[in-house]
Structure formats: C-alpha cells, structure tokens
Design a protein around this nucleic acid. Sequence first.
DNA 1: GTCTATAAACCGATAGAC
DNA 2: GTCTATCGGTTTATAGAC
Lengths: 206, 206
Amino acid sequence: MPPASSKKLSFKQQQLKFREDAILDTVNRFLAKKGFDLMTMDEVAADVGIAKASLYKHFQSKEELAAASMTRLLDDTLEVVHALAARMDPLDKLKAVVRWAVTLHLAGTMPLLPSTRSSIQQALLAYPPYLERLSRLTEALGDWIGQAQAAGTLSPALPGEVILYTIFARSCDPVADFLKMGGAFSDDDIVDLVVHTCFEGISGRT
Amino acid sequence: MPPASSKKLSFKQQQLKFREDAILDTVNRFLAKKGFDLMTMDEVAADVGIAKASLYKHFQSKEELAAASMTRLLDDTLEVVHALAARMDPLDKLKAVVRWAVTLHLAGTMPLLPSTRSSIQQALLAYPPYLERLSRLTEALGDWIGQAQAAGTLSPALPGEVILYTIFARSCDPVADFLKMGGAFSDDDIVDLVVHTCFEGISGRT
DNA sequence: GTCTATAAACCGATAGAC
DNA sequence: GTCTATCGGTTTATAGAC
C-alpha cells in the first residue's frame, strides 16, 4: 500500500477534476476549430461523452466554460514561460514562447485570439481568474521585451506594447492556417516560417 | 432638358443600385465590428432603415449578402492596386496596399479576414464573383512579390505564398485593434507601426 | 390592377431548466 | 433524457402607392 497522498483531494474530488480537464480539452479543441459562437453545448457534451446537464454541474454557463478554457491555456503558457532557463537570452525566450504557441495552433488546440469582435471578450473581462493570469503573463513577457530592447535584439524604436501585442497576435496567425490548407509545407516548416516573419518580417537584406 | 443619359439604367434601376450600395456599406461595417456569425439580418435591416424582408429582394441569403460585401471590398482593393503607378518600386507598392488596408481596418470598414473558422468561408468559395476577384488580386500581388524578391527588397528566402498570405493577414492584424483600444496612439501612428512590423518584424538591428 | 415594401408568421437550432 | 423559451434566418400574406 502506498503512503497516504499528501494531496487533500478525495477520490471523488479527483474524479471531478479529471472530468473537468476532459471537458476543457474538448472545449479547447472546439474553440480552436469553430470559435465560441459556433460551439454548441450539445456537441461539447457529446464529445466528452457526458450529458449536457452535467456540463452545468461544472460550469455555470457557456461563457464561463470558455473563460475556464482560456484561463487554463494561460496557465499552460505561464508554465512554459517559467520553465525557460533564466540564463537564456530574452529574445530566444520570446521566440520559444511564440514557437510553442504556433505549434499549439497548428495542433488545433489554440483557442481563437479573443478579438474585439468575439462575444466572449466581455465574459473574459468579467472573469477575475483570467485577468489575473493575463496580468502575470503580460508582466513576465514585458520584462523580457524590455531586456531584449535594452540589448538591441528587439527593436528599441518600437513601443513595448506593440511588441507584446504582436507576440500575442502571431500566436494565432492565420497565415499558419493558410499554409496548412495549402498542404505544401510540414507543420515544422510552417512554425519556422511564422516565427521568422513575426521577428524578421518579410523584407529582404536582413 | 439634359441629354438622354448614355447609361442604360432606368430611374428605378438606379434606385435599386443605390440602396444596394447602402446595404453593403452597412454590412461591411457590421462584418468589421462583429463578424459574420454575430451579424443579424435584423440589425442590418434596422441600420439601413428598411424592413428585413426587403434585404431578400436584393440578396438571396445572409451568406450571399456577406459574399457580395467581400466581393465589393476586393473590387475596391483591385482599384487601389491598379491606381498605383507602374514605375513605382514593387516593395513600395506592396507597402501602400497594406497601408491602405490597415487604414480601412482602423476606420471600421474592413470585414474580418475569412479565416478557416468562419462559416462564410464555404459560401465565399461557392461564389464565383468573389473567386474571380481573389484570383486577379493574387496574380497582381504575386507579380510584385516576385519582382521585389528578385530585387532583394523582399526576402528571397521566403516562399512567395508566405509573403502573400502575410500581406493578407496583416491587413486585418488584431494588433491594430489592441493599440486602438489602448488609446495611446493616433490612427496614423498605428498604421505606421503595423506596416512596419509586417515588413521589418519586431527584431532589432535591422 | 399591379407592384413594392413590410409586418407578421414560420421553423429550426440552441442555451439552459427540470 | 426531455422540455421550454428565445433567437434569428427565411417565407408569405397584406397594405398602400402609383
């Protein structure tokens, strides 16, 4: 018999957590594939293999479901950010984050960028856990951006916000989808191309 | 009495054309603001100031309405493309096109990029007038891209499709929305920043 | 009488309740 | 697992102008 776990989760709680993760996995894929508006609670429930009503045991509304999914994505991102070695060059760390995000995108598990036009945007801003993660991520990336600009490896002429927003935006760059649809490139090639155009642009003589 | 118009449009036909343009103006704005899925026929009709049923006198369906709007946008783009002086540098012509598109975007009249996830994508591919414009635009921009790569002003190492798709994608770059929301920059500044990061990226020492 | 615009009705889909 | 209310795209029948 193994020693008693130090975790305080009962068996039932573990099962709840497990199913919650399964739900969020499904939601992540649907958000990536169809976006919030076209995702239905019926298909989420069917995909997870539970009754629709059970979804509402875990999440109060469709909006909260999506917000929880986005929050978990930011948690994953924060883990990636913290896992990057402290001694690594700031520019390389930023490139690694973008590379990770584009890879997720191509794998079909990157929810749509919360754009001005999506109806979840409002729900996200009313969901404190999401805002808290976003704030921490912004701070971490902002530090690296400042360091890279000081070192001259990121353009010091660009406002830091522009660089930050660009990094967020390129994580969902539709160019990746177009290239994947074209079928002429492997996923690895596409990641390289998107990361490259993010940092170096499309101009020549760089 | 003025001489008989050379146009073959009767007064009634002119009125129809006029109202059709008004409808498409409204649709353009709603597509830019909310996207296809969140745009309702009710609000389009209300904004134009006509009854919802009247929309169906002009367009058979919501999909065709959006497709007509996108087609008109490509027509406008083709006009801009043809208006650029033939002797201009290809790189400068491409920058001018992106600049024009981002300006439209900020003005709130640039419909969303037809992404893989939108439900209009299918309708657009089934709408020959749209495909015909897209084909002509792709050809024109493709020529310029090839010339700029040969001259070394666009990266010869990048596949032409990557550059083309990037130019399309940056025309709807969400970075512009984020910067506008922040309120720290004028529209002109935002256009400069987005065009710059499109061509030069965010790296330093360029 | 015909033609046009519209109000009202229709109906499928979907979030959420029981 | 079924039920209901709502919303939104589409259709149809009517009222009014010429």
